[in-house]
């Protein structure tokens, strides 16, 4: 599909892209600033230290999913199963702790391993059987949620976790900093370093641009792709732990709909859904724009439906803006506009 000439053209224009990207993220920063200015006047207690930390606190679970969704989408894939896997991991953790009598921290480690294995299932189907990620994860989306419901008959709700564990989601360090924030920062820095500062991570973008090209360049495409899905599963389990600690319960419906929110944050952050283009800091900005919008509207006594409608509108506006931008930077014009869903497949 991609010939070497097209590739070399792409490489030539890379600095230009970096520039365009810089400006795309600048666009998000401006949107964010505008939001803050508006909500500062309409919202009650919007610009306070407490509110800042609360916004961060409520973004952690979704943020973990979005952070790792970034490399997944960078490789040209997608993972629709993260929300369901969050629910299943929460149940696994709850069951290990309550029914198997494990120490909560040991159970937590087992849950993380479980998440990685479940992500491995996606990875095997995608890389070994060469199936499109959209379809594989659509299937595991139903499967994981279904298993969570089957294990609990839908009704069982594990509660009464020890205080020391709940501190992870409800406590405050030094009385102000939410306890889950350091985890989030650690993961954010880790994923950023991985994607932007290592050759290993940079190969994700190469794969997303052209899996064949990456293969010719000597990148073990299957193994790298498998890695991001396993990482995605692992992170869904970590998010599940924070979720359980935050809400004090493990129930089969935990995390419903989070996959779409995570994808929205990633795409709003400038990552191309076809892979190859995007950044972790862009995702963080996209996440911030969404979180500030949601909370700002509630603090301004506006209904949540408006928030969702604005999110949808913002997504379209930002993307349309990006396309128009692309049209005007002439040399880039036709490389990616006709990109297709098929490129979600990592291999051809």
């Amino acid at each position: 599909m991609t010939n070497p000439i097209a590739n070399s053209a792409t490489f030539k224009t890379t600095p230009k892209w970096k520039k365009a990207f810089f400006s795309f993220e600048a666009l998000l920063v401006v949107v964010l600033v505008v939001e803050i200015i508006i909500f500062n006047s309409t919202g009650t207690n919007f610009t306070t230290r407490d509110n800042l930390f609360e916004i961060l606190r409520f973004s952690v679970v979704l943020g973990l999913l979005a952070l790792v969704m970034t490399p997944v989408i960078l490789t040209g894939g997608i993972d629709l199963s993260v929300g369901s896997l969050l629910g299943l991991s929460a149940i696994v953790f709850g069951k290990l702790w309550r029914d198997a009598g494990m120490d909560p921290w040991l159970a937590a480690i087992c849950t993380l391993v479980f998440g990685a294995v479940a992500g491995g299932l996606n990875a095997v189907l995608i890389t070994r059987l060469r199936l499109p990620p959209l379809i594989v994860t659509l299937g595991s989306f139903s499967l994981f949620r279904g298993l969570a419901e089957a294990l609990t008959r839908g009704v069982d709700n594990v509660t009464g976790f020890p205080e020391s564990f709940l501190f992870l989601g409800q406590g405050y360090l030094f009385g102000v900093i939410p306890a889950q924030l350091p985890i989030f920062i650690l993961v954010a820095v880790g994923v950023w370093l991985l994607v932007h500062q290592t050759t290993f991570g940079r190969s994700f973008r190469a794969i997303g641009f052209s899996p064949e090209g990456a293969r010719y360049a000597g990148i073990p495409v299957e193994r790298r792709v498998a890695f991001v899905y396993i990482l995605s599963g692992f992170m869904a389990a970590l998010a599940a732990l924070v979720y359980v600690a935050h809400y004090g319960q493990a129930k089969a419906d935990a995390g419903s709909g989070y996959e779409l929110l995570a994808i929205t944050a990633v795409v709003l952050g400038g990552t191309s859904i076809f892979g190859g283009i995007g950044s972790v800091h862009g995702t963080l900005l996209g996440l911030a724009v969404l979180a500030v919008l949601r909370r700002g509207l509630t603090l301004s006594d506006q209904p949540a439906e408006l928030g969702s409608i604005l999110t949808g509108g913002l997504l379209l506006a930002v993307l349309a803006g990006e396309v128009l931008l692309k049209k005007f930077s002439s040399r880039r014009a036709r490389v990616k506009t006709n990109a297709q869903v098929s490129q979600i497949t990592p291999t051809t």
């Binding site: 299937g139 139903s142 499967l143 994981f144 279904g146 298993l147 089957a150 609990t152």
Partner: peptide
């Protein structure tokens, strides 16, 4: 409760 797992 098995329905969704079966569909998936």
């Amino acid at each position: 409760q098995w329905e969704r797992a079966i569909q998936g």
